[in-house]
């Protein structure tokens, strides 16, 4: 059970959160301008690093806020990325 630091509520059990996958994957400014391949890359392709990974969490059972942390996928060490 990870202890995830919500920037608003403080550290809470993982069970209170929904995982949001890789962070910093922005919705394209003009989707219509993208090729099918570029669009598919936005939709379906994500990194899967061994080591630090920027990822999003939503505090669904708490404040309902989305935020970003860096989690080391080998040790589960978590450092906050979203500041209050």
């Amino acid at each position: 059970m990870l202890l995830i630091p919500c920037p608003w509520c403080g550290p809470r059990d993982e069970a209170e959160f929904h995982y949001g996958g890789q962070a910093h994957v922005a919705y394209p400014a003009d989707p219509a301008a993208l090729t099918d391949e570029e669009w598919a890359r936005y939709l379906f392709f994500r990194d899967n690093p061994m080591g630090p990974f920027s990822e999003r969490w939503n505090h669904t059972s708490g404040c309902r806020r989305w935020f970003t942390v860096t989690r080391d996928t080998t040790t589960n060490a978590i450092t906050p990325e979203t500041s209050r």
Partner: peptide, 9 residues
């Protein structure tokens, strides 16, 4: 305080 990070580093 409860908001302080409890993730022991």
């Amino acid at each position: 305080s409860s908001r302080e990070s409890r993730v022991p580093v």
